[in-house]
Design a protein around this nucleic acid. Structure first.
Length: 287
DNA sequence: ATGGTCGCTAAGCGA
């Protein structure tokens, strides 16, 4: 079983020799829209793609009900979650232990929208942050829409926090903003739609720049090319209509971003049985 | 221009 192979220390040694001392690391971020309902396709992802670290958002699962045993059976014995009943919820699932796991509360809302932990890459600790940014409701005006005001406040707090970061870090997750023209199916038609308004898009750029992050999905896919990670459930034929948005992101500080060999959207997962409305985004680091 | 679909959790809210 592919998922178990590289948990074998002997196998690690062999792979390590082949890659100049460090094993490749595959990181997947996926808004799963209920982890319990989605376990069959989560298992498919683990078996077919064998990530080292899986970051989930919208687990919609209280910590006491997290389906840990299914992950453990597949060789993912290190499971960290920060959930609540009904809404939000984030988790990180790994083959090897992650260190210094923590969650930060944003906007004093009590929402479970962040979890972070360290792993080692090329002899240095890298802090991995997994975010679920508020969607922001329907009306893109913070004066009349509290949810949009919350989203902007959340981004402001991210910006201030990232500005303090030192060392290498990675940000993944559902940031609920598609910042560039080709991150949406129609820049014009979505210019007043929450997730692609100029205010949010500019704010997200400020957040990214405050941490000095590289947009790794766009490092590997030119800005001139459409790239989506989310398609609404409401479309008759999501793939044919292809009215998607790039709401999910992978950012890295430059030294770590220099190690990305591929970063892509697993579009086919949007078509799996009982799918999430988001597809996984995948990054592979290699020396 | 509108309504279209999901997943909570048990009618309506959030996405």
């Amino acid at each position: 079983m592919a998922a178990l192979e590289t948990t074998d220390p002997q196998q690690d040694v062999l792979q390590s020799a082949a890659t100049g001392g460090a094993l490749p690391i595959k990181i997947v971020s996926w808004n799963i829209n209920s982890v319990r309902l989605r376990m069959p396709i989560v298992e498919k992802l683990l078996l077919d793609h064998a990530p080292d670290i899986l970051c989930l958002q919208e687990t919609k699962c209280p910590d006491g009900s997290f389906p840990s045993s299914a992950f453990q059976r597949l060789g993912y014995k290190h499971i960290y979650f920060h959930g609540q009943k009904g809404y939000h919820g984030v988790a990180m699932i790994a083959r090897r232990p992650l260190e210094n796991v923590s969650s930060k509360e944003f906007c004093q809302m009590g929402d479970t929208r962040h979890i972070a932990a360290d792993f080692e890459w090329l002899g240095r600790p890298v802090r991995l942050h997994n975010f679920y940014v508020p969607a922001g409701g329907d009306v893109p005006d913070p004066e009349v829409n509290d949810k949009f005001a919350h989203k902007l406040q959340f981004l402001d707090e991210m910006e201030a926090w990232f500005a303090e970061f030192e060392g290498e870090s990675i940000v993944v997750g559902d940031l609920n903003i598609a910042p560039y023209e080709n991150d949406v199916w129609s820049h014009k038609q979505l210019s007043k739609v929450v997730s692609h308004t100029p205010l949010e898009c500019e704010r997200l750029e400020t957040v990214r720049e405050s941490g000095g992050f590289v947009d790794c999905m766009r490092k590997h896919t030119p800005a001139s090319e459409k790239q989506f990670s989310w398609w609404s459930y409401r479309a008759k034929d999501w793939s044919k209509a292809d009215k998607g948005r790039r709401l999910d992101h992978i950012w890295m500080t430059p030294a770590t971003a220099a190690s990305t060999k591929e970063v892509y959207v697993l579009r086919e997962a949007r078509g799996w049985e009982k799918p999430s409305d988001h597809a996984p985004v995948i990054a592979v680091l290699a020396p």
